[in-house]
Amino acid sequence: MILLDHQAIDNLLDGMADELSALLPASAVAPCAVIGIHTGGVWVARELHRRLQGRIHMEAEVGTLDISFYRDDFSRIGVNPRVQPSSLPFTLDERPVLLVDDVLYTGRTIRAALDELFDFGRPSLVRLAVLVDRCCHELPIAADVTGRNISPEHGERIKLSGPQPLELHLQEQAPGASQGDTSTP
């Protein structure tokens, strides 16, 4: 079932970009690094990066983060061999960072992403933008900018498809599958 079509998502992204341009330091000396979390977060990050062009001082490329090696459930489910290497083609030291994901759910992905970010350098600040914030957080982590709050029924899963067009789907969770926000492919 389609929860949000690409038009609705476009509108959300426009609104998020407006909020972000007010939130992020426009005239900062150090360019802001926009970093998406694989895979859906990268799509959203690219869209936001395009919309913020010329409005804030940014790195030209979008960074990508694959948090597979930082997940807290490694000892339970192991490593997915098809990890995309993280690519951060800029320094993070003393830079503002805009971290982007598609769905904020338990908060465990963001914790892992923060751990990984700090292994690359020491950003001056980190802001979090997510397209969808759904219940139920398990960690004290909140987004600075949210596209939409959604409260699905227990057992339902929110999934972003993309990169073109971006569409948000509501899926029945397969029995037995443990679908946290960490498992967006």
Binding site: F69, S75, R76, I77, G78, V79, P81
Partner: peptide, 9 residues
């Protein structure tokens, strides 16, 4: 090491 040590033991 990562592949042999990951997952339920």
């Amino acid at each position: 090491m990562a592949l042999t040590m990951g997952g339920e033991r």
